[in-house]
Design a protein around this nucleic acid. Structure first.
Lengths: 205, 205
DNA sequence: CCTACCGATCGGTAGG
DNA sequence: CCTACCGATCGGTAGG
């Protein structure tokens, strides 16, 4: 036993990385503090020392995920392009972030399912100001006839975002929905989502 | 204490109903056998007597959910309508099933996240034969020019199904993505999904 | 259907 | 950073 590891060799960061992966795969209740400690190479009390209690680890992981979009959304919205390219660019950046590590999408879905009230409030506080701007841009496009008139901007946004997170999170499973040999890869699946978003939004020539 | 309830007054069915609700909301690991027993009005050992162990309750709940579509998909496919109405009818039936009890969608998502290998195999065995027929119908529509040529039928199906389950399961949370006062209800959100599916699939006049 | 009880594991604390 | 240890809760069994 023992194997005392050099104190604070960025243990906190290591725990956060391990927690993202393990919470995403097994859920908060499915991962013991002891399992987190083992993944990092310390004992359970050492993990708790860095965060106070287990719940605080969950909050820190969620904070890190939401912080990305709190920074990235205003940046993407400010990008000087045509409204149409900007919308597709934002969607691509959004999908790319989750595609780079599908456990981010799984963790997000789990948090939504486990703590709906907390997550709704967090999304509202951190992201709704920016998505509101996107909805306004869609309405402007409708006024100019570039975007389908009947469409509800907020409902469309919710559907596309939900589809993106859901598709990345569940892809290794949902390929089971189609006969063996015909399974599309994740990139092709997300291309289908981008195509559907584009066709459902824009009035094409 | 005590309160011995009449033996077998459909306790098994009651447990399955309670388990669907509680597993959907708190996850399998988040619901104790004791909590299930309390929801039904018996003691924990009585619950275990009906199923053998806790895992068997999970399997029974999943079986009930998948059994619905094993029956309903061939029925919907056989319905004598135009290919276009049939596709929209199937999608509406699919969304209606989850909309009638969003906990069904939440349970499905949780099982996908908790047991990806098991769920992929179950989807393949139970549903892929039928979704394969839908993909074939889409290809036929492409050959006739009624459906967009570039589209990958399997990828499109996965995106639409994922979006449907995801939208229903997470709706009370994802409305937090838009500014207060502008939140679309679930029916309006699903209308946006059906519209997007239609526009992305069919070559419109 | 129940009561009584089992060993195992949980999150967390004390103390160094 | 560690060892040692706490009470609470877990799934499951014995026995009637």
């Amino acid at each position: 036993m023992s194997a005392r590891r050099p104190p604070d060799l960025d243990t906190r960061q290591d725990v956060l990385r391990a927690a993202t992966r393990l919470f995403a795969r097994h859920g908060f209740d499915g991962v013991s503090v002891q399992a987190l400690a083992e993944a990092v190479g310390v004992r359970a009390p050492s993990v708790l020392h860095h965060f106070g209690n287990k719940q605080a680890i969950r909050e820190a992981v969620l904070d890190a995920l939401l912080a990305h979009w709190k920074e990235e959304l205003p940046r993407g919205l400010a990008a000087a392009q045509s409204a149409r390219d900007r919308l597709e660019g934002l969607l691509r950046a959004f999908l790319g972030f989750f595609q780079a590590d599908p456990d981010r999408a799984r963790l997000m879905l789990r948090e939504i399912l486990d703590r709906p009230d907390v997550l709704r409030a967090r999304l509202r506080d951190d992201l709704a100001p920016w998505t509101g701007l996107i909805a306004d841009a869609i309405r402007a496009g409708q006024a100019e006839g570039r975007i389908h008139a009947g469409l509800d901007p907020e409902a469309w946004l919710i559907v596309v975002i939900t589809a993106g997170v859901g598709a990345v999170a569940t892809h290794p499973v949902t390929i089971g929905l189609v006969p063996a040999g015909r399974e599309p890869g994740l990139p092709l699946t997300l291309d289908a989502l981008v195509d559907a978003a584009r066709r459902s939004l824009f009035v094409l020539r």
